[in-house]
């Protein structure tokens, strides 16, 4: 059984991946696919929106005669990620306490 990942969690996960280092599309979509089961066609709008909102920037780097688009988290992006992390801690705490209640 799969839980549908809320958009804000997708945003946070992408930003978190980028805090380690700048990376390109396939690395991001692969991580999201493996950990959350989300396809790249879901990720494209997420990346586009994060860029439009100024949370990340892109630049191209040549690789084997083509370009790879690298994603870089901005300062606003880091702030946004912290907000999401905090919201997630609260949310997780609330769900945990509800789920644990049902165990008793």
């Amino acid at each position: 059984m799969n839980i549908q990942v809320p958009t804000v969690v997708l945003d946070g996960s992408v930003l978190a991946v980028l805090t380690k280092e700048d990376t390109y599309g396939y690395i991001i979509t692969k991580a999201m696919q493996e950990l959350l089961g989300v396809s790249e066609s879901t990720m494209y709008p997420v990346l586009r929106r994060l860029k439009r909102d100024g949370y990340l920037e892109t630049y191209d780097k040549p690789f084997e005669g083509r370009n790879r688009r690298y994603y870089h988290i901005t300062e606003v992006g880091v702030t946004h990620l912290n907000e999401i992390s905090q919201a997630w801690v609260d949310f997780r705490g609330a769900v945990d306490s509800l789920l644990e209640e049902s165990d008793d």
């Binding site: 390109y24 599309g25 396939y26 692969k30 790249e40 494209y44 990346l47 083509r66 790879r68 688009r69």
Partner: peptide, 14 residues
């Protein structure tokens, strides 16, 4: 073009 570039990368990198 942005859309196609994204999917081209996905296909080639995969």
């Amino acid at each position: 073009e942005e859309l196609l570039q994204f999917y081209e990368e996905q296909m080639l990198d995969a």
